[in-house]
Amino acid sequence: VTLFVALYDYEARTEDDLSFHKGEKFQILNSSEGDWWEARSLTTGETGYIPSNYVAPV
């Protein structure tokens, strides 16, 4: 499993987005949709879409 870490804070803009804080780690569930990836936060357990340019591989 490839994990990603948040480089910046992000505040959700829609109900499908996932808010997160810098340093939070994610498991990517689906990265085939372009710039927005479906991810699960390893901190909160919540699932939603995150901007791929806000995260980097651990």
Results as ranks from 00 to 15, higher is better:
residue 15 E to W: 10
residue 33 E to L: 14
residue 38 E to T: 13
residue 5 V to D: 02
residue 32 S to F: 11
residue 50 I to G: 00
residue 16 D to L: 14
residue 36 W to P: 06
residue 50 I to Q: 00
residue 32 S to D: 11
residue 20 F to Q: 00
residue 19 S to K: 04
residue 27 Q to H: 13
residue 23 G to D: 06
residue 18 L to N: 01
residue 29 L to D: 05
residue 50 I to A: 01
residue 41 S to H: 07
residue 39 A to Q: 00
residue 20 F to T: 03
residue 37 W to S: 02
residue 57 P to H: 06
residue 24 E to R: 01
residue 27 Q to C: 12
residue 46 E to C: 11
residue 55 V to S: 01
residue 8 Y to G: 05
residue 26 F to D: 00
residue 32 S to P: 10
residue 19 S to T: 10
residue 40 R to K: 12
residue 46 E to G: 09
residue 29 L to Q: 05
residue 26 F to N: 00
residue 6 A to P: 00
residue 14 T to D: 12
residue 9 D to K: 05
residue 31 S to N: 13
residue 28 I to M: 04
residue 28 I to G: 01
residue 19 S to I: 02
residue 21 H to D: 06
residue 45 G to I: 02
residue 32 S to A: 11
residue 3 L to R: 05
residue 26 F to Y: 01
residue 4 F to A: 08
residue 14 T to F: 15
residue 12 A to S: 12
residue 10 Y to Q: 01
residue 47 T to K: 12
residue 26 F to M: 06
residue 50 I to F: 01
residue 36 W to V: 08
residue 10 Y to L: 03
residue 34 G to A: 14
residue 44 T to F: 03
residue 12 A to K: 09
residue 23 G to P: 00
residue 47 T to M: 09
residue 28 I to H: 01
residue 2 T to W: 13
residue 23 G to R: 03
residue 28 I to K: 04
residue 46 E to A: 14
residue 52 S to Q: 07
residue 9 D to R: 05
residue 57 P to M: 09
residue 25 K to Y: 15
residue 20 F to E: 00
residue 12 A to F: 02
residue 8 Y to E: 07
residue 50 I to S: 00
residue 28 I to E: 00
residue 16 D to F: 15
residue 30 N to H: 08
residue 48 G to W: 02
residue 5 V to F: 10
residue 52 S to P: 07
residue 44 T to R: 04
residue 55 V to D: 00
residue 33 E to R: 15
residue 3 L to H: 10
residue 47 T to P: 02
residue 4 F to M: 08
residue 37 W to M: 06
residue 5 V to E: 08
residue 14 T to A: 13
residue 13 R to P: 08
residue 55 V to A: 04
residue 7 L to K: 05
residue 27 Q to L: 14
residue 46 E to I: 11
residue 41 S to F: 03
residue 56 A to H: 09
residue 28 I to F: 04
residue 20 F to G: 00
residue 31 S to W: 13
residue 55 V to M: 09
residue 16 D to C: 14
residue 42 L to V: 09
residue 11 E to Y: 10
residue 58 V to G: 05
residue 20 F to S: 01
residue 53 N to G: 11
residue 3 L to Q: 08
residue 4 F to G: 04
residue 54 Y to E: 01
residue 1 V to S: 13
residue 47 T to E: 09
residue 5 V to H: 05
residue 54 Y to W: 07
residue 15 E to R: 11
residue 2 T to R: 09
residue 48 G to L: 02
residue 4 F to R: 03
residue 26 F to C: 01
residue 8 Y to R: 09
residue 2 T to M: 13
residue 21 H to C: 13
residue 5 V to M: 09
residue 53 N to R: 13
residue 27 Q to D: 07
residue 38 E to D: 04
residue 25 K to R: 13
residue 55 V to I: 10
residue 25 K to L: 15
residue 22 K to W: 05
residue 39 A to N: 00
residue 28 I to L: 07
residue 41 S to I: 07
residue 24 E to G: 02
residue 30 N to W: 09
residue 14 T to C: 14
residue 6 A to K: 00
residue 9 D to C: 08
residue 16 D to I: 14
residue 19 S to C: 05
residue 3 L to S: 06
residue 36 W to A: 06
residue 38 E to I: 15
residue 58 V to E: 10
residue 47 T to R: 09
residue 15 E to H: 11
residue 47 T to V: 14
residue 1 V to Q: 13
residue 23 G to Y: 06
residue 43 T to S: 13
residue 3 L to N: 06
residue 13 R to V: 13
residue 41 S to R: 15
residue 30 N to K: 08
residue 58 V to W: 15
residue 27 Q to S: 08
residue 39 A to C: 06
residue 58 V to N: 06
residue 35 D to L: 14
residue 5 V to I: 13
residue 58 V to H: 09
residue 37 W to H: 03
residue 30 N to I: 06
residue 42 L to G: 03
residue 17 D to Q: 15
residue 14 T to I: 06
residue 47 T to H: 08
residue 38 E to S: 10
residue 34 G to S: 14
residue 24 E to D: 15
residue 34 G to H: 12
residue 28 I to A: 03
residue 15 E to D: 13
residue 46 E to T: 08
residue 4 F to C: 07
residue 32 S to G: 10
residue 30 N to E: 07
residue 28 I to V: 10
residue 8 Y to P: 00
residue 56 A to L: 08
residue 17 D to F: 15
residue 18 L to Y: 05
residue 12 A to E: 03
residue 29 L to V: 08
residue 31 S to Y: 12
residue 21 H to W: 10
residue 38 E to K: 12
residue 32 S to R: 10
residue 42 L to N: 04
residue 49 Y to F: 13
residue 6 A to D: 00
residue 49 Y to V: 08
residue 6 A to M: 01
residue 26 F to E: 00
residue 56 A to Q: 11
residue 37 W to L: 08
residue 58 V to A: 09
residue 54 Y to Q: 05
residue 35 D to P: 10
residue 23 G to W: 06
residue 40 R to Q: 09
residue 31 S to K: 13
residue 9 D to Q: 05
residue 33 E to W: 11
residue 48 G to S: 01
residue 32 S to L: 11
residue 35 D to M: 13
residue 50 I to W: 00
residue 28 I to C: 04
residue 17 D to Y: 14
residue 7 L to Y: 03
residue 35 D to A: 12
residue 14 T to M: 11
residue 23 G to Q: 03
residue 35 D to I: 11
residue 37 W to E: 01
residue 44 T to I: 02
residue 25 K to E: 08
residue 32 S to Y: 10
residue 1 V to W: 13
residue 46 E to Y: 11
residue 33 E to N: 15
residue 43 T to Q: 09
residue 13 R to Y: 09
residue 45 G to E: 05
residue 17 D to N: 10
residue 19 S to Q: 05
residue 55 V to E: 00
residue 6 A to W: 01
residue 11 E to A: 11
residue 17 D to L: 10
residue 42 L to R: 04
residue 2 T to E: 11
residue 12 A to L: 02
residue 42 L to Q: 07
residue 27 Q to R: 09
residue 48 G to Y: 02
residue 6 A to C: 02
residue 43 T to I: 10
residue 29 L to T: 07
residue 40 R to T: 12
residue 8 Y to A: 09
residue 48 G to Q: 01
residue 45 G to C: 10
residue 17 D to A: 15
residue 7 L to R: 04
residue 34 G to K: 15
residue 53 N to Q: 11
residue 33 E to A: 14
residue 9 D to W: 04
residue 11 E to F: 10
residue 56 A to W: 09
residue 10 Y to N: 03
residue 42 L to I: 10
residue 55 V to N: 01
residue 18 L to K: 02
residue 17 D to T: 15
residue 2 T to V: 12
residue 11 E to W: 09
residue 2 T to L: 13
residue 33 E to I: 12
residue 5 V to T: 06
residue 3 L to F: 11
residue 53 N to L: 10
residue 13 R to E: 12
residue 1 V to P: 13
residue 40 R to Y: 12
residue 31 S to P: 09
residue 37 W to I: 06
residue 35 D to S: 11
residue 56 A to N: 06
residue 9 D to N: 09
residue 52 S to E: 04
residue 53 N to I: 10
